[in-house]
Amino acid sequence: MEKALLIVDYSYDFVADDGKLTCGRPGQSIDRAIADKFNDYVAAARPVFIMMDLHHDNDPYHPETKLFPPHNIAGTPGRELYGRVKEVYDANKDNPLVIWIDKTRYSAFAGTNLHQLLAERCIQSIEITGVCTDICVFHTAVDGYNLGYDMTVDAAAVQSFNEEGHRYALSHFRNTLGMTVHSES
């Protein structure tokens, strides 16, 4: 079964200490795990999809405008990948296995061509990494479940703003979506 890696919203704004909507240290703690997976997938000739949140400054029509401070604004450094993950991306960005997709909703499937690209590559199994476990990773997993994907998540490669939400999402992945959850303590 073909497998792909999804790196969800691992941006400067979501992870760096001075990011616009940062989960801070928890997000920083998964940098090496995501970067290692990124390297492993490329080395195994498996696709890696960078699913990146995209917003426009002062967009009155986007539902998140009322919920969160401005973040991941088009054309800003806040949309860049963070840390080691950025380094691995920069070293592999011209590789056709590495695909960057902008997304404008929580789920990586909503309003994107991700499902089509996975189908074209005969991908039936996805591993989801990134932030936030209980927001964008969660919604991506729910949509992936509804589309019939076999999914895994490594608890060491996802994080959130709060530990309670993170733990809830991991439990939901395992007990409600039937996902394989690795590295749980």
Rank of each mutant, 00 (worst) to 15 (best):
M1Q: 02
E2M: 10
K3D: 02
K3A: 04
A4G: 08
L5S: 09
L6W: 05
I7G: 07
D9F: 14
D9G: 06
D13P: 05
F14A: 05
A16W: 03
A16P: 00
D17G: 11
D18H: 15
G19S: 15
T22N: 01
T22L: 01
P26M: 03
S29E: 14
I30Y: 10
I30G: 03
D31Y: 09
I34E: 06
K37H: 05
K37P: 05
F38G: 03
F38H: 02
F38W: 12
D40Q: 13
A44C: 03
R46Q: 15
R46W: 06
V48H: 09
I50R: 00
M52R: 14
M52S: 14
M52T: 13
L54K: 14
P60I: 07
Y61W: 12
Y61Q: 15
Y61D: 15
P63M: 09
E64T: 14
T65G: 08
K66A: 15
L67W: 12
P69N: 08
P69S: 10
I73C: 11
I73S: 02
G75V: 13
T76L: 01
P77I: 12
G78V: 01
R79A: 01
R84H: 13
R84Y: 11
V85D: 05
V88D: 02
Y89V: 07
D90C: 08
D90H: 12
K93I: 00
P96K: 06
L97C: 01
V98C: 06
V98R: 04
I99G: 06
I101E: 02
D102M: 04
K103I: 01
K103T: 08
S107Q: 04
A108K: 00
F109T: 00
G111I: 13
T112R: 01
T112G: 05
L114E: 08
H115I: 01
L117I: 05
E120H: 10
R121N: 14
C122P: 00
I123H: 13
I123T: 11
Q124K: 12
Q124G: 11
Q124M: 06
S125F: 13
I126S: 01
I126L: 09
E127I: 08
E127M: 08
E127N: 10
I128Y: 02
G130V: 11
G130E: 09
V131E: 03
V131Q: 12
C132D: 14
D134T: 04
I135L: 15
C136L: 03
V137S: 03
F138G: 00
F138E: 07
D143W: 00
N146I: 11
N146R: 14
L147W: 06
L147C: 07
G148K: 01
Y149M: 04
M151I: 15
T152N: 09
V153H: 02
V153C: 14
V153E: 06
D154C: 08
A157T: 09
A157S: 07
V158L: 06
S160C: 11
F161V: 07
N162D: 14
H166W: 04
R167C: 11
A169E: 09
A169V: 13
S171P: 00
F173I: 04
R174E: 15
L177E: 09
M179W: 02
H182R: 13
S183H: 14
E184H: 07
